[in-house]
Design a binder for these strands. Structure first.
Lengths: 325, 325
DNA sequence: ATGAAAGCGCTAACAT
DNA sequence: ATGTTAGCGCTTTCAT
């Protein structure tokens, strides 16, 4: 492969001049510029970016820590990130972590050694204190709520959205309410749980542990929840479901078993995925794609101006009333 | 940031020795190894991979050309790729191209300049002849059928699977059959179209252009198809649908408009996405995740042994009979 | 405007 | 077993 020296020799100029031409620097005579460009064309030359990375300390790549690419929640966020990255001409080093801490550490380390210019974290296992320590090496943006003066974040108010959903159900007279979440111990989940129990207690209703389901991710998981409910002596009359996909699984299985929705089982779901429309599910739009877009643009801003401040943006959620409440 | 020289100085050894320790090379005394490791720990040192990339000419990164991350078809393939990459500890440079040729060229170029070690192509706009020219720079694997002695591929037999679907429909007595595809001009689509018309002509039935729908990707697109059909004087009685998501949209809209499935409109769909189960859709499992996994492992093999031959693997598809035929 | 030369941080061939 | 040293391909002073 030809290198910059070859080009310089063939064009009859110095490597510095070639570099200037390559980087669109001023102070190069038209004649030499043309000569260089001709040789570049003729040899079909491309710069070795690894050398460029080494010397500039930048890579035009940002890392993305994402637990599961195929879960609708994360897929939507990723979609937003990818859209903006395409636009900004920045490359994405995507690491599907399955929540493995060592995978997260790996990307953090890449930031430290400048293999990536910045890092987007959709969700993580590592503690924020650990992650914060890496912010000295480059901007880090979180797609969840975090109080930090070193890591920017974009999030929606999961507490608020869960309270809204609860209010909807309580107003309809429901008191036997359960919920389905993914990870039970995440920050978001804890918030949701808190909203859930706050709403219940302000209505003077006790929390029923047996109606709280965790590790519910898929359509099949949703069906499973319905089967558990059917076996109960006392069943919940309403369910908050984190994820439309799961809600669809629940509704489908419920109907199959003679339960009417919403009469026997009301559902409020989250995310406003296309499938929610299909099943006419009342859902709260969490603006997931927008979260991804915003996260990326926050990152870009800090990349372009490292002095720009750490920001925390809360995106408004939005209730979509349909037929399951 | 500390570099290898600092470590060498502090540990009282040469940079070569440090490099040997870092790379687990033999011929280093335990004493020196320990000394180096101690300093590495103490300084929390990490190698600058950009320098390593420059000198080794490798990056432990592979590129992924993928048109849309959020389309179920591609998302499933991506899932397979990501699973294997996680396992193999290889990083993924993912480029969502939206089928923009210049984005594809960009990754091809990265291969040329060794910014990535290999390339996975899920689908593309560029001609294979163009892409083939880059195979000299590193292994390229395609997730679609291609006849090439330079690019390996994993694919399923779209012609065969479409023929099977047609056979199913013809056996049930359908002769007024239409289809819904995404891109109409892709290689896969052309194959499917061919299977479609071959099947029809072998049954002595003419092809009806007005029943062939293109650019159909989403649930909403599916609903739109139904609305077009309802307006027709003569309607198809069956539809081949590339994608369960779209099929779900079709069924939902059809039922809303009083059409019975399969009595008024039979559906055979493809991919066996979880949503197909929910809607009880007869579908042909295209083994998408498996395609992704296989593509990655083919790439890995060629990365580890560049002399290993170009391979073309066809994965068997599988009919899942449910209730829409 | 142009070029010479000094690195960027690392690996590996070579010498000892 | 260990160290010295020559690059990898590029950018960027610093001269001129």
């Amino acid at each position: 492969m030809a290198n910059i020296k070859d080009i310089a020799r063939l064009a009859g100029v110095s490597v510095a001049t070639v570099s200037r031409v390559l980087n669109d620097h001023p102070y190069v005579s038209e004649a030499k510029r043309a000569a260089v460009q001709e040789v570049v064309q003729r040899l079909n030359y491309s710069r070795n970016v690894n050398a460029v990375h080494l010397i500039t300390g930048k890579t035009n790549m940002v890392g993305v820590v994402i637990p599961y690419l195929n879960l609708p929640y994360f897929n939507s966020i990723m979609e937003g990130i990818a859209q903006e990255a395409l636009e900004a001409n920045v490359h994405l080093l995507v690491s599907q972590t399955n929540y493995a801490a060592d995978k997260e550490t790996e990307l953090l380390n890449m930031l430290k050694i400048k293999q990536i210019d910045g890092l987007l974290i959709c969700s993580r296992s590592l503690k924020w204190e650990v992650i914060e320590a890496y912010s000295q090496f480059g901007p880090i943006i979180a797609c969840e709520y975090i109080e930090s003066d070193r890591i920017s974040s974009v999030h929606i108010d999961h507490y608020g959205s869960f309270r809204l959903a609860m209010q909807l159900l309580l107003e309809k007279g429901h008191t036997r309410i359960g919920y389905c979440l993914g990870r039970g111990h995440s920050f978001n989940s804890r918030n949701r749980r808190r909203a859930f129990s706050d709403a219940l207690s302000s209505a003077g209703v006790p929390v029923r542990e047996e109606w709280m389901f965790y590790q519910i991710y898929s359509i099949e998981d949703g069906a499973e929840v319905v089967r558990s409910i059917l076996d109960m002596e006392e069943r919940p009359t309403a369910l908050l479901v984190a994820g439309d996909q799961v809600a669809a699984g629940i509704i489908s299985e419920a109907v199959k078993n003679g339960l009417r929705v919403p009469e026997d089982l009301a559902i409020v779901s989250f995310d406003n995925h296309p499938i929610a429309q299909l099943f006419d599910i009342t859902t709260i739009d969490n603006r997931l794609v927008e979260i991804g877009r915003t996260a990326f643009s926050l990152l870009l801003k800090r990349l372009q101006d490292p002095a720009s401040p750490v920001e925390h943006r809360e995106l408004p959620f939005r209730l979509i009333e349909r037929a399951t409440v």
